[in-house]
């Protein structure tokens, strides 16, 4: 009986955990940390082309190749957002935002942010795979 009670109490505690009062936002919420700089570096890649519209179209093409559904695109801003269901039993949702900008050095800079179940993906391998696919898409269009 004690065991059952313990399981019940554990269940109640877990449910009540949601009721905890709002926490103060951490003070470093908007601070730029080393980790963030590192993440930004592997989320970004520069391509030797001035035609950022072509790069944007290659981004859209590679996202389609990867089975993403394009949700929004804005050419003047160089912005694309896309999503797909993934993971076990397609229970998770991957969201990706890509921004293409032309740099002063006449290159195009591609920045990718990916989320899985609203949690940022911070694995460099994931972004590497995306850029491999993008390079292929850019190469095909040339």
């Amino acid at each position: 009986m004690n065991g059952r009670l313990a399981v019940f109490i554990a269940g109640v505690c877990l449910s009540l955990a949601a009721c905890a009062g709002p926490q103060k936002p951490p003070e470093d919420l908007l601070a730029l940390t080393d980790a963030q700089l590192k993440i930004r570096s592997f989320q970004t890649r520069t391509f030797d082309t001035q035609d950022s519209n072509n790069v944007l179209r290659a981004v859209i093409g590679s996202l389609q190749d990867l089975g993403f559904i394009i949700e929004r695109a804005n050419a003047p801003m160089g912005l694309v957002t896309a999503g797909k269901f993934a993971g076990q039993g397609y229970a998770g949702f991957v969201e990706v935002t890509v921004i293409v900008r032309s740099t002063e050095t006449k290159q195009s800079e591609v920045r990718v942010n990916a989320l899985f179940n609203t949690k940022p993906i911070e694995d460099p391998k994931v972004y590497q795979n995306f850029f491999t696919s993008l390079e292929r898409s850019l190469f095909v269009s040339r």
Partner: peptide, 30 residues
């Protein structure tokens, strides 16, 4: 007590498994 609690606990444990999907495959061509 037992029947509602068991699915709740199981659900909480299993919700961890969804996170275990391999993110590196999201951007891999098949």
């Amino acid at each position: 007590l037992r029947w509602p609690v068991l699915p709740i606990v199981a659900g909480l444990l299993l919700s961890g498994c969804i996170q275990m999907a391999k993110p590196e495959t999201f951007f891999e061509l098949t």
